[in-house]
C-alpha cells in the first residue's frame, strides 16, 4: 500500500479513525487500539485508548492478547476488528456482539466459508488461553477456537437480523483491503447515504427539512446541508446520543438530527 493501513484516507477520514468510531458507536465500553511497538497512529477520538503489542510480528494473537488484557477488568466481552474495513457497519458489530451469550467464548462469522477472526467477538476470559498459545508459538487464531466454545454464524444466520439484512445485506462489513487495487476500489465507492433532518432555527426557511446526503462523517453531513458543528449546533445520531464530534463516522442508513445546542426550555 505504501502507507500503513491505519492511516489510509477514506472520504476525508482515516481507516483507523473510522473503524474505532464505528465500533465505539456500538460497544458500551472502552475502545482499544493495539499498535506495534513505536508505531505512529493517525489522530483518534480522545476516548480511544492505545496499547502496544509486547512483541512485533507475532500475528493477530499477539494483538488479541494485548487488547483482551487492556479491557479485561472492564468488560466481559470484546469485539475485535482489523483496521482495513472501511465498510464496517454498526449493525454488523451489534449482530456479533449481541450473539455473545453466556454459553459462548467466541462469536465467529463465517462468510463464503471463511472464518473471520478479526470481525469476531471474544470473551475476555480467553486471555489465558491466548497467552498460552503465544508462549508455545501456536499463533493462528484457529488454535484458540479449538480450545473454547465457538458460535459460528454463516451468512444466512447473520442475516436473520433484520437490521443487518437491511443495512448491510452483502456483508460488506468484512471486506478488507489486501492490496492497492482493493484500496482504489474502496475509494471509488460513494460515501454512504444518510438521512438528515434539521430542527428549529436550523431548518431551512423553505423546502423540506428532511433530506438524504452522501456523507462519511458527521461533519460532512452537516456541511452537506450548510451547517457547521459549533457551540450552537449539535447532532443526534439515530435518535440516540447527542454528538458534537465532526469526525464521527456515519454508515449507510444512519439518521442524523441537527438541533440547536440550546435545546430545552
Amino acid at each position: 500500500m505504501g502507507t500503513a493501513k491505519a492511516a489510509l484516507e477514506w472520504h476525508g477520514s482515516t481507516l483507523l479513525r473510522r473503524v474505532t468510531g464505528i465500533v465505539g458507536r456500538v460497544v458500551g465500553g472502552p475502545v482499544i487500539v493495539v499498535r506495534a511497538p513505536g508505531q505512529e497512529l493517525p489522530a483518534l477520538a480522545p476516548a480511544v485508548e492505545v496499547v502496544e503489542d509486547a512483541r512485533e510480528g507475532r500475528g493477530p494473537l499477539q494483538g488479541l492478547a494485548a487488547g483482551l488484557r487492556a479491557v479485561g477488568d472492564r468488560a466481559a466481552g470484546a469485539y475485535v476488528s482489523s483496521t482495513d474495513v472501511p465498510l464496517l457497519h454498526p449493525a454488523f458489530v451489534r449482530r456479533i456482539v449481541g450473539a455473545l451469550g453466556q454459553d459462548e467464548d467466541v462469536v465467529l462469522p463465517e462468510i463464503g466459508g471463511h472464518p473471520q477472526p478479526l470481525a469476531a467477538a471474544y470473551r475476555t476470559r480467553l486471555l489465558g488461553v491466548v497467552e498460552e498459545l503465544i508462549a508455545s508459538d501456536r499463533l493462528r487464531p484457529a488454535f484458540v477456537f479449538e480450545r473454547c466454545r465457538v458460535l459460528r454464524l454463516s451468512e444466512t444466520a447473520l442475516l436473520t437480523d433484520p437490521m443487518l439484512a437491511r443495512l448491510d445485506p452483502g456483508l460488506s462489513s468484512v471486506e478488507n483491503l489486501n492490496n492497492p487495487d482493493d484500496y482504489r476500489q474502496a475509494r471509488a465507492l460513494e460515501p454512504p447515504e444518510v438521512n438528515v433532518e434539521r430542527f428549529g432555527t436550523l431548518a431551512p426557511e423553505s423546502g423540506p427539512r428532511r433530506t438524504v446526503v452522501a456523507a462519511c462523517t458527521l461533519g460532512a453531513a452537516a456541511a452537506a446541508v450548510g451547517l457547521t458543528l459549533d457551540e450552537h449546533v449539535v447532532a443526534a445520531l439515530n435518535g440516540d446520543q447527542i454528538i458534537r464530534d465532526p469526525e464521527l463516522p456515519l454508515a449507510a442508513g444512519d439518521s442524523v438530527a441537527f438541533l440547536a445546542a440550546d435545546a430545552g426550555g
Partner: peptide, 23 residues
C-alpha cells in the same frame, strides 16, 4: 445573538419536534 435565536424566532415550541426526534 445566536444564543437566543431559538426563543426569538420560533419560541420554545421549537423543542417539540427536536425532542420527538431524540425520544
Amino acid at each position: 445573538g445566536p444564543a437566543t435565536a431559538k426563543y426569538r424566532e420560533l419560541g420554545t415550541m421549537a423543542n417539540l419536534l427536536a425532542f420527538n426526534a431524540i425520544s
